[in-house]
Amino acid sequence: MPELTAVDRQIIDNLQGEFPICERPYAEVAERLGITENELLQSLERLLADKVLTRFGPMYQIERMGGAFVLAALAVPETRYEEVTALVNALPQVAHNYRREHALNMWFVLATETQGGIAEAVARIERDTGLAVYAFPKEREFFVEMKLEARL
Protein backbone atom coordinates (compact mmCIF):
# COMPACT_ATOMS: atom_id res chain seq x y z
CA MET A 1 0.00 0.00 0.00
CA PRO A 2 1.27 3.53 -0.77
CA GLU A 3 2.51 5.72 2.08
CA LEU A 4 0.15 8.45 3.19
CA THR A 5 1.32 12.05 3.30
CA ALA A 6 0.30 14.50 6.03
CA VAL A 7 -2.18 16.02 3.58
CA ASP A 8 -3.63 12.59 2.74
CA ARG A 9 -4.20 11.97 6.41
CA GLN A 10 -5.90 15.32 6.83
CA ILE A 11 -8.19 14.54 3.91
CA ILE A 12 -9.07 11.10 5.28
CA ASP A 13 -9.65 12.38 8.80
CA ASN A 14 -11.60 15.52 7.90
CA LEU A 15 -13.43 14.70 4.72
CA GLN A 16 -15.57 11.64 5.37
CA GLY A 17 -18.64 13.86 5.51
CA GLU A 18 -19.77 17.48 5.50
CA PHE A 19 -18.34 18.17 2.06
CA PRO A 20 -19.91 21.55 1.29
CA ILE A 21 -22.59 22.21 -1.29
CA CYS A 22 -21.46 25.53 -2.78
CA GLU A 23 -20.00 26.83 -6.01
CA ARG A 24 -16.33 26.08 -5.19
CA PRO A 25 -16.51 23.35 -2.52
CA TYR A 26 -12.95 22.08 -3.03
CA ALA A 27 -11.61 25.64 -2.59
CA GLU A 28 -13.59 25.99 0.63
CA VAL A 29 -12.28 22.70 2.04
CA ALA A 30 -8.72 23.42 0.87
CA GLU A 31 -8.76 26.72 2.72
CA ARG A 32 -9.88 24.96 5.90
CA LEU A 33 -7.03 22.44 5.51
CA GLY A 34 -4.47 25.14 4.68
CA ILE A 35 -3.71 23.86 1.18
CA THR A 36 -4.63 25.07 -2.29
CA GLU A 37 -7.65 23.93 -4.27
CA ASN A 38 -5.31 22.33 -6.81
CA GLU A 39 -3.39 20.42 -4.16
CA LEU A 40 -6.65 19.06 -2.80
CA LEU A 41 -7.94 18.01 -6.23
CA GLN A 42 -4.62 16.36 -7.10
CA SER A 43 -4.45 14.54 -3.77
CA LEU A 44 -8.00 13.23 -4.19
CA GLU A 45 -7.19 12.05 -7.73
CA ARG A 46 -4.13 10.19 -6.48
CA LEU A 47 -5.88 8.68 -3.46
CA LEU A 48 -8.64 7.37 -5.73
CA ALA A 49 -6.14 6.06 -8.31
CA ASP A 50 -4.17 4.30 -5.55
CA LYS A 51 -7.44 2.91 -4.15
CA VAL A 52 -6.82 4.45 -0.73
CA LEU A 53 -10.26 5.95 -1.32
CA THR A 54 -12.86 3.82 -3.05
CA ARG A 55 -15.09 6.79 -3.83
CA PHE A 56 -15.50 10.51 -3.28
CA GLY A 57 -18.99 11.92 -3.32
CA PRO A 58 -22.49 11.49 -1.93
CA MET A 59 -23.50 8.29 -0.17
CA TYR A 60 -27.10 7.54 -0.87
CA GLN A 61 -29.50 5.89 1.57
CA ILE A 62 -31.60 4.00 -0.96
CA GLU A 63 -34.21 2.99 1.62
CA ARG A 64 -35.28 6.63 1.83
CA MET A 65 -36.09 6.43 -1.89
CA GLY A 66 -38.26 3.34 -1.58
CA GLY A 67 -35.42 0.93 -2.23
CA ALA A 68 -33.73 -1.66 -0.06
CA PHE A 69 -30.34 -2.73 1.26
CA VAL A 70 -29.94 -6.36 2.30
CA LEU A 71 -26.91 -8.22 3.65
CA ALA A 72 -26.63 -11.69 2.17
CA ALA A 73 -24.21 -14.60 2.30
CA LEU A 74 -23.18 -17.69 0.37
CA ALA A 75 -21.29 -20.84 1.33
CA VAL A 76 -19.03 -21.10 -1.70
CA PRO A 77 -16.98 -24.25 -2.34
CA GLU A 78 -13.28 -23.22 -2.36
CA THR A 79 -12.76 -24.69 -5.83
CA ARG A 80 -15.47 -22.40 -7.22
CA TYR A 81 -14.60 -19.23 -5.31
CA GLU A 82 -13.23 -17.16 -8.21
CA GLU A 83 -16.02 -18.20 -10.57
CA VAL A 84 -18.76 -17.41 -8.04
CA THR A 85 -17.12 -14.07 -7.17
CA ALA A 86 -17.30 -13.06 -10.84
CA LEU A 87 -20.95 -14.14 -11.11
CA VAL A 88 -22.01 -12.28 -7.96
CA ASN A 89 -19.97 -9.13 -8.66
CA ALA A 90 -21.42 -8.93 -12.18
CA LEU A 91 -24.75 -7.80 -10.74
CA PRO A 92 -24.92 -3.99 -10.40
CA GLN A 93 -27.16 -4.56 -7.37
CA VAL A 94 -24.13 -5.94 -5.48
CA ALA A 95 -22.75 -2.82 -3.76
CA HIS A 96 -20.05 -4.45 -1.63
CA ASN A 97 -18.73 -7.97 -1.37
CA TYR A 98 -16.26 -9.38 1.17
CA ARG A 99 -14.59 -12.71 1.61
CA ARG A 100 -14.89 -13.80 5.24
CA GLU A 101 -13.56 -16.73 7.22
CA HIS A 102 -16.57 -18.93 7.98
CA ALA A 103 -18.58 -21.70 6.29
CA LEU A 104 -20.58 -18.74 4.94
CA ASN A 105 -17.52 -17.34 3.21
CA MET A 106 -18.95 -14.67 0.90
CA TRP A 107 -20.89 -11.71 2.34
CA PHE A 108 -22.36 -9.06 0.12
CA VAL A 109 -24.77 -6.14 0.29
CA LEU A 110 -27.56 -5.89 -2.26
CA ALA A 111 -28.86 -2.38 -2.96
CA THR A 112 -31.94 -2.13 -5.15
CA GLU A 113 -34.25 0.68 -6.16
CA THR A 114 -37.39 -1.23 -5.23
CA GLN A 115 -38.24 -3.67 -2.44
CA GLY A 116 -38.96 -6.33 -5.06
CA GLY A 117 -35.51 -5.88 -6.56
CA ILE A 118 -33.96 -7.80 -3.67
CA ALA A 119 -35.91 -11.00 -4.37
CA GLU A 120 -35.06 -10.69 -8.06
CA ALA A 121 -31.35 -10.29 -7.33
CA VAL A 122 -31.37 -13.20 -4.87
CA ALA A 123 -33.15 -15.43 -7.42
CA ARG A 124 -30.69 -14.40 -10.11
CA ILE A 125 -27.66 -15.23 -7.92
CA GLU A 126 -29.16 -18.59 -6.96
CA ARG A 127 -29.83 -19.40 -10.60
CA ASP A 128 -26.40 -18.25 -11.82
CA THR A 129 -24.40 -19.96 -9.06
CA GLY A 130 -26.60 -22.91 -8.10
CA LEU A 131 -25.97 -21.97 -4.44
CA ALA A 132 -28.51 -21.02 -1.76
CA VAL A 133 -28.43 -17.34 -0.77
CA TYR A 134 -28.84 -16.57 2.93
CA ALA A 135 -30.52 -13.16 3.17
CA PHE A 136 -30.21 -11.17 6.40
CA PRO A 137 -32.42 -8.10 6.01
CA LYS A 138 -32.00 -5.70 8.89
CA GLU A 139 -34.86 -5.78 11.35
CA ARG A 140 -33.50 -2.90 13.36
CA GLU A 141 -30.64 -0.48 12.94
CA PHE A 142 -28.98 0.23 16.27
CA PHE A 143 -26.10 2.34 15.00
CA VAL A 144 -24.38 3.33 11.73
CA GLU A 145 -21.47 5.73 11.53
CA MET A 146 -18.81 4.39 9.25
CA LYS A 147 -15.98 6.85 9.83
CA LEU A 148 -12.47 5.62 10.55
CA GLU A 149 -9.47 7.89 10.81
CA ALA A 150 -6.14 7.09 9.15
CA ARG A 151 -4.08 4.83 11.37
CA LEU A 152 -0.80 4.68 9.50
Binding site: I12, Q16, E18, V52, G57, M59, Q61
Partner: peptide, 30 residues
Protein backbone atom coordinates in the same frame (compact mmCIF):
# COMPACT_ATOMS: atom_id res chain seq x y z
CA UNK B 1 -26.93 22.47 -5.34
CA UNK B 2 -30.52 23.19 -4.24
CA UNK B 3 -31.57 19.60 -4.97
CA UNK B 4 -28.47 18.05 -3.36
CA UNK B 5 -29.13 20.10 -0.22
CA UNK B 6 -32.76 18.90 -0.19
CA UNK B 7 -31.65 15.26 -0.63
CA UNK B 8 -29.16 15.73 2.23
CA UNK B 9 -31.79 17.34 4.48
CA UNK B 10 -34.22 14.51 3.70
CA UNK B 11 -31.67 11.82 4.55
CA UNK B 12 -31.62 10.42 1.01
CA UNK B 13 -27.96 11.48 0.96
CA UNK B 14 -26.42 10.15 4.17
CA UNK B 15 -23.27 12.21 3.76
CA UNK B 16 -20.95 13.65 1.12
CA UNK B 17 -17.25 12.91 1.32
CA UNK B 18 -14.45 10.39 1.06
CA UNK B 19 -14.98 6.63 1.38
CA UNK B 20 -11.64 5.10 2.44
CA UNK B 21 -10.48 1.57 1.84
CA UNK B 22 -10.06 0.48 5.48
CA UNK B 23 -7.08 -1.71 4.75
CA UNK B 24 -5.20 1.11 3.02
CA UNK B 25 -5.57 3.47 5.97
CA UNK B 26 -4.29 1.00 8.54
CA UNK B 27 -7.42 -0.86 9.64
CA UNK B 28 -6.21 -4.24 8.48
CA UNK B 29 -8.40 -6.36 10.76
CA UNK B 30 -12.11 -5.99 10.10
Amino acid sequence: MRRMQALLNGGIIRRIGAVPNHYAIGWTAN
